[in-house]
Design a binder for these strands. Structure first.
Lengths: 199, 199
DNA sequence: CGCGACGTTGATTTGCCTCAACGATTGTGG
DNA sequence: CCACAATCGTTGAGGCAAATCAACGTCGCG
């Protein structure tokens, strides 16, 4: 049934790349040749905390979540990733250190993966690639910064408002408890926020 | 008195750069020729919210703080910068948009500045520079990520502990109210945390 | 059908804030 | 050089936002 080949996902990936850099046909082929296809089912883990994160994963289809479990078992959602996003434990990936986060699929998903060797070879062979990664990383920094301001300066209800403002359809794709853990509040409290809104 | 010239600070800056990339003598000269020296006195602003951030500033000496003021006048410390660090409103710098943060000197400080034009010319002339910036930006992302985890998952007291663990001498250089606003708590509450510790 | 995951709602507790008053220190002008 | 104001940290009283605990209804699934 779903035995589609990796090639059919190249255009989507290249479209993403070309929003940042311009590549020759040879270069496009080269990049694509390094990609690995991986399918994950709902609830399946792409990365377990403690393991070393060997891949960065570009989401072609689906929805994933990275989260941190503290010693008491509390679940903190760190990031989501949907189509056109990358996800990984970047600290673990860079340092070859044990991951502090888990990554799990919420929906059946398809990702394209690059390992460290592949990325480093791309830095060598395609100068533009370093530029692409630099810009991407700067985007992440800026986004993180905004999120930090929100975490510190806004109330739970305000953060919820800001989130559904930014991602209006996130409530369709994501159970409330994960939205809550992303916002840094309990599901119970999120439920009360939502109840208050419709009063 | 303190009419030292910019040249005397080149070695410190180059030492920093060379921790990341290797440059020829010509390239070193070129980079340095683009730097602008700026001195700031305690309480003097390097950037006002609303203005466009025209420079990224590398701290040669001193201590600076970036902070966000919300509509009610609450002061949230976003970042510090001491010797060997960069500071700027990176979102404003990249987009030429009005800054959302202020940057102010806490001590008499000396910074070396690069404007956008300089940085873009360095991307053109020194391929290594893109690498340097990519790595730097990744470092920022990872650090931010850690801070976000802490903000969401730890109590005020725990965050305080983690901070003085990481920067043991920060209490000497920084008034408590700024530490508090960095941690996302009130100075009053920080004082009580500290009182509790010595019990 | 019955079990487990999820969301809701209410009662209670707690972490942190606000407000206010008080020393200690610093800086400033007479 | 002293007097005064301003800033900073501390401490206590009271309040609010959000957590915890617990009970209940709903839904999807074995």
């Amino acid at each position: 049934m779903s035995s589609s080949s990796i090639q059919e996902h190249y255009p989507f990936f290249l479209q993403h790349l070309q929003r940042h850099i311009r590549l020759s046909d040879d270069e496009k082929m080269h990049v694509c040749s390094l990609l690995k296809l991986r399918r994950v089912l709902p609830r399946q883990f792409l990365l377990n905390a403690g393991d070393i994160c060997k891949f960065e994963s570009f989401v072609v289809k689906g929805f994933l979540r990275s989260f941190y479990l503290d010693d008491q078992g509390n679940d903190f959602t760190l990031h989501f990733a949907m189509e056109d996003w990358w996800i990984a434990d970047f600290a673990s990936f860079r340092e070859n250190s044990p991951a502090t986060r888990n990554i799990v699929a919420l929906e059946q998903s398809i990702v394209l993966q690059l390992d460290k060797e592949a990325i480093e070879s791309l830095y060598r062979d395609i100068p533009q690639f370093e530029h692409y990664r630099r810009v991407l990383s700067e985007n992440v920094s800026v986004t993180q910064d905004e999120r930090l301001i929100k975490a510190i300066s806004m109330s739970g209800a305000e953060r919820y408002e800001a989130l559904i403002q930014k991602y209006p359809n996130i409530e369709q794709r994501l159970p409330q408890k994960h939205i809550a853990s992303y916002l840094g509040i309990t599901p119970v409290f999120l439920s009360k926020i939502r109840a208050g809104k419709n009063a």
